[in-house]
Write a protein that binds this DNA or RNA. Structure first.
Length: 177
DNA sequence: AAAGTGATCATG
DNA sequence: ATGATCACTTTG
């Protein structure tokens, strides 16, 4: 098991979104407890050209963090109540991020942040060096399925159609021998 | 099906 | 200052 570093977050959001499936999202609370959950679902958001991406209208106070080099967290509040966790990827200056949509035991972007107590105080947290939030992986590639992204009705039809949502394939039900 | 909730950004 | 919008979840 290896902690992901700068090089692991350097690739584009689509590649990163696939690679993060099966990796462990790790969180250390102030009281010292550490939680680790396997990532089961991700979505890629890919630059100003991607009309589904928050940064498609350019750099604003909120999207500024997406322009930094891959490896930090982008956490924002959605619908006034759900904290959403993203991992910024790619080179500095190009706003790409992977939305973490689910971990084992907490399917749904708002549920996993609640479970792992992730909120906007972790916005801009450096996942490479932080002792509060990081990712580990054994490098194994998970089998996954690709489908269109959720909740992006505002995007162009072309971008709505892109299959940039990725989910680990469920292990086949074990049959008695 | 619809509410609940508040930050964000574009408009004035 | 105001108002529309929103990468969602829960409840009925």
């Amino acid at each position: 098991m290896k902690r992901l570093d700068e090089s692991d977050f350097a690739s584009d959001a689509v590649a990163s979104a696939k690679a993060l499936l099966g990796a462990w999202l790790c969180r250390r609370l102030d009281d010292g407890t550490v939680m680790r959950r396997r990532i089961t679902e991700t979505e890629a958001y890919c630059g100003e050209e991607d009309t589904a991406c928050h940064a498609h209208k350019g750099r604003t106070p909120r999207t500024d963090v997406m322009y930094s080099a891959g490896g930090c967290a982008y956490v924002y509040l959605c619908y006034g109540m759900h904290e959403m966790l993203n991992v910024v990827t790619g080179p500095e200056g190009h706003p790409e991020a992977v939305l973490i949509r689910g971990v084992e035991g907490a399917e749904g972007p708002g549920r996993l942040t609640k479970l792992l107590r992730i909120d906007r105080s972790l916005n801009r947290e450096d996942l490479v060096s932080s002792d509060r939030l990081w990712i580990e992986s054994d490098g194994a590639k998970a089998r996954f399925t690709a489908s269109p992204r959720i909740g992006i009705a505002y995007a162009t039809a072309r971008d709505r159609r892109r299959k940039w949502r990725f989910r680990v394939e469920e292990s086949p039900p074990r049959r008695p021998a």
